[in-house]
């Protein structure tokens, strides 16, 4: 039966419980990637071996599927003696892959500031720290916010793949409910609404943040 109110009343709390895991994974991944991506981008723009190590890392993680990375960590690591739980494996794989994408966003932002800006700052006699604080970083931040919002949305959607390694996120909850109830339409609508609400929330929060920052400048 489609739109069975009794069924929906039992489904909603289960989906919300799954959504909590999804949100937790997405927030942790995004915060860790903001730091890890910056480390990678700085390493990549420096000279010497750190630059090519970071370069190889970024290309390697961006050109292999997240699902395969999760399988390597979840199934592979336990075979060689570092067993991780499903949640931790999923989180690690999400951070490893998205760190590469976030690093590229930082790199794009840093490169988009013209060298003349540095020269102009120096010509005005600014110290290095002052130059970065009031000339370079504000411009970089303004440019990386829109792609960062997209990345946060992409991370939120990517978390659904942890269902493949038996983490009870909203996707896995939906799979379990479909298989046990055969009430596919209701479950599909429910899980679609959960993801739409989450991704819209990310996008609205991002736009508010961007707006607030634009006033601050």
């Amino acid at each position: 039966m489609i739109f069975d109110p009794n069924f929906i009343a039992r489904l909603i709390p289960a989906l919300i419980e799954g959504a909590e895991v999804t949100v937790e994974l997405a927030i942790l991944t995004f915060v860790i990637c903001l730091v890890w991506g910056l480390v990678l981008a700085l390493a990549n723009s420096a000279q010497g071996p750190s630059s090519w190590i970071a370069g190889i890392y970024i290309q390697a993680v961006r050109n292999t599927p997240l699902l395969i990375q999760m399988y390597i960590i979840y199934f592979g690591f336990s075979m060689i003696g570092f067993g991780l739980s499903g949640f931790n494996s999923g989180l690690l794989a999400l951070c490893i892959q998205n760190g590469g994408y976030v690093a590229e966003i930082y790199r794009g932002g840093l490169q988009s500031v013209s060298p003349r800006q540095y020269e102009a700052g120096r010509a005005l006699g600014m110290r290095r720290s002052t130059l970065y604080r009031i000339v370079i970083i504000p411009q970089v931040v303004a440019r990386i916010i829109p792609p960062m919002i997209n990345q946060a949305i992409s991370i939120t959607k990517d978390t659904s793949q942890v269902a493949a390694i038996a983490v009870m996120d909203v996707m896995k909850v939906a799979q379990v409910w479909v298989e046990s109830s055969a009430n596919t339409y209701d479950v599909f609508l429910g899980v679609a609404v959960v993801y739409l609400v989450l991704t819209s929330a990310v996008s609205i929060a991002g736009r508010l943040f961007e707006h607030k920052l634009a006033f601050a400048q």
């Binding site: 959607k157 659904s160 996707m171 479909v178 596919t184 679609a192 739409l196």
Partner: peptide
């Protein structure tokens, strides 16, 4: 675009798999 960009591909694949026979 709003619908597609807000729903993960895995959700669409899974439910096509369940819904198409129905």
């Amino acid at each position: 675009l709003f619908l597609i960009r807000g729903i993960p591909l895995l959700v669409l694949l899974t439910f096509t798999y369940y819904l198409l026979p129905l």
